[in-house]
């Protein structure tokens, strides 16, 4: 009797597991992430992680080789064919917030043999990944749709309260 019930529970569990995106299971995933690396000029970006997981399904779409499906890109496979998931999956774990600082350039200089000489910084990685996908899938691509300006930001861009007086006042908006 117990054996049958265990089997049933096991079956239900397996069914549940199969229906959920299997790659994201068994991990403690944040539902929302506050991205604040540009908080000087902009409000924090409240990134809805859960929503993106349900839409994109495959974690590797964003987290390329660090989690989810292993690499398929022919160029990456040459070296990363057998690479496993990594401990660090956050973007900032690999993509430096200061990719062009004197220290960063010196480090590059000292690691001439490193293949990944052209790794984007944190800001570049975020934007290229996000905007690239949003442009294809119809997500928001305008600057302010993700980054409402703070007062300091408005002053920086001479916009809003700080807009020049003689502004023609036509087309507003950031970027597109």
């Amino acid at each position: 009797m117990y054996a049958v019930r265990n089997w049933l529970i096991g079956g239900v569990l397996i069914g549940a597991l199969a229906s959920a995106p299997s790659i994201c299971l068994g991990k403690n995933l944040p539902d929302s992430i506050a991205l604040d690396s540009l908080a000087q000029l902009y409000e924090k970006v409240k990134f809805n992680h859960a929503k993106h997981i349900s839409m994109v399904k495959d974690c590797a779409e964003c987290h390329h080789h660090t989690t989810g499906t292993l690499v398929e890109d022919a160029n990456c496979v040459r070296c990363h064919k057998n690479s496993n998931e990594t401990k660090i999956v956050a973007c900032k774990g690999c993509h430096s917030a200061q990719p062009f600082s004197a220290e960063a350039l010196r480090e590059k200089e000292n690691n001439r043999r490193l293949y990944h000489q052209d790794k984007p910084g944190l800001k570049g990685a975020y934007h290229q990944n996000c905007i690239g996908c949003h442009a294809k899938s119809g997500g928001p691509t305008g600057c302010k749709e993700c980054h409402p300006l703070k007062k300091v930001g408005e002053a920086f861009y001479n916009t809003g309260e700080y807009a020049p007086r003689q502004t023609p006042g036509t087309e507003k908006g950031h970027g597109h």
Binding site: C143, K144, F156, Y157, N158, T159, G160, A163, P164, Q166, T167, P168, T170, E171, K172, G173, H174, G175, H176
Partner: peptide
Amino acid sequence: PTPDRPFDDPS
């Protein structure tokens, strides 16, 4: 100097 139009103005 202050620009003629805001820096977020695509016009």
